[in-house]
Simulated assay, not measured.
Amino acid sequence: MCRAYGAVDRATLTVRRDIAVEVKIGVQHAPREIALESGQSAEEVEQLVAQALAGKSQLLSLTDDKGRKVLVPAERIAYVEIGEPSVRRVGFGTL
């Protein structure tokens, strides 16, 4: 597999695509919040945020459901909103 495409090996990607947790991150001095759907559990996201805010890491690093990384400097985090896991629905009958 080509490593140039985001340097992600699909065999080692452990993100669950059927269940997504919505995460909204408010950044100081930014007019808009960052919103993403993550395959990580709500507990994993909360643990990563707590570590960043406690000073154990300088960056909050989250992976969205498509394998992209979102990096936010820990000192710029205003708030983090973690939504409930939602199961993805497919088709027109699930509206």
Rank of each mutant, 00 (worst) to 15 (best):
G83T: 01
L59F: 14
Q58E: 15
A11M: 04
K66G: 10
L95M: 12
T94S: 11
D9Y: 05
R88I: 07
T14Y: 02
A30S: 14
D9P: 03
T14R: 02
V23M: 04
V80N: 01
Q47Y: 07
Y5L: 14
K66L: 13
L36M: 11
V87A: 14
V72M: 13
V90S: 14
L59M: 15
V15G: 01
E37I: 01
R76F: 13
L53Y: 06
L60D: 03
D18M: 12
D64G: 01
R89C: 07
E46W: 01
V87L: 13
L71G: 09
R32I: 09
E46F: 03
K66Q: 09
K66D: 11
I34M: 08
I82N: 00
P85N: 04
D64Q: 03
L59W: 14
L48P: 00
T14H: 03
G91S: 02
E43A: 15
L62K: 08
V49A: 07
A78Y: 05
Q40F: 09
D18R: 13
G6Q: 10
T12I: 12
S61I: 15
A54Y: 04
F92A: 15
D65Q: 12
I82V: 08
T12G: 05
L59A: 14
V90K: 13
E43I: 04
I82Q: 00
A42M: 02
V15P: 01
P85I: 07
V23K: 00
P85W: 02
A20R: 09
Y79K: 04
G67H: 01
P73I: 12
V87N: 05
L71M: 09
K56H: 15
E33Q: 12
R3M: 13
K66Y: 09
